[in-house]
């Protein structure tokens, strides 16, 4: 448990505080990890096999001390993982990520797909709301019971998807007309700043992983509890 918590503090909370996104990080990662966190907590707390020290008895199930320890450990891990993912999303602009990936040799097509999938979400939302408005004007029910709404989805999903597919051919042609299919590297106009300190921090984090693995298999971490 000390492991994930140390990780959470040094690799998630500290950097988030430095980047000024600590509050948003806490809120988002809490929401993200709440469902899985609660279920993991309950399952491990009450269904830990072979625990000896009983803390609480609730009908057929018992909570043991060993179960509680494991539950807290799993929870700390979940928080560390969801915190790290949230931190990534809060501090990384998709456009910068894509440019940087491409600079490091990822194929332009792959980078394009990654970029386009992020950028087309708003376009899809726009299209969907335009179609919803149009269908509503013709009397479509988008409110009311779940079943009613589900039925209402049918005439909306079709046009959204068909519209996007029809666009694909036009978009492909337009891309080809601008030389996108040329093999080889593209020119990049800019790339995100990458300071020496960031580079050092990144390498330290990477090196920490084998170090922790070694420490763990050597049993040093057990000393910490």
């Amino acid at each position: 448990m000390v492991g994930p918590i140390t990780l959470l503090a040094t690799a998630v909370v500290l950097p988030a505080a430095a980047a000024g996104v600590l509050r948003r990080l806490l809120r988002t990662s809490m929401v993200l990890s709440l469902p899985i966190g609660i279920s993991a907590l309950l399952v491990n707390l009450f269904f830990f096999p072979g625990g000896s020290e009983v803390l609480l008895r609730l009908g057929p199930v018992t909570a043991t001390r060993e179960g509680l320890e494991l539950a807290l450990q799993v929870l700390a891990r979940i928080l560390a993982i969801s915190g790290a993912i949230t931190l990534f999303y809060l501090t990384t602009r998709p456009a910068e990520l894509v440019v940087d990936l491409e600079r490091r040799g990822v194929s332009p097509r792959l980078a394009f797909v990654a970029n386009a999938s992020v950028q087309t979400v708003p376009a899809m939302v726009d299209r969907a709301s335009a179609i919803i408005a149009a269908q509503r004007a013709r009397g479509l029910d988008t409110e009311g019971s779940i079943a009613q709404r589900a039925r209402g989805l049918v005439p909306i999903v079709g046009p959204v998807i068909m519209g996007s597919i029809a666009e694909v051919e036009q978009r492909t042609m337009a891309l080809e007309a601008r030389g996108f299919t040329r093999p080889g590297r593209r020119t990049l106009l800019w790339h995100p700043a990458d300071s020496g300190a960031e580079r050092v921090a990144r390498w330290l984090l990477v090196l920490t992983v084998p170090a922790l693995l070694v420490a763990r298999s050597a049993g040093w971490l057990d000393l910490l509890g």
């Binding site: 456009a95 394009f112 950028q119 601008r178 030389g179 040329r182 590297r185 593209r186 020119t187 106009l189």
Partner: peptide
Amino acid sequence: GICGTVFEEIAFGPMNLG
């Protein structure tokens, strides 16, 4: 559809040409 500014959009073709 992947460019945040008009400048980048117009530069897209020449960038593709390397």
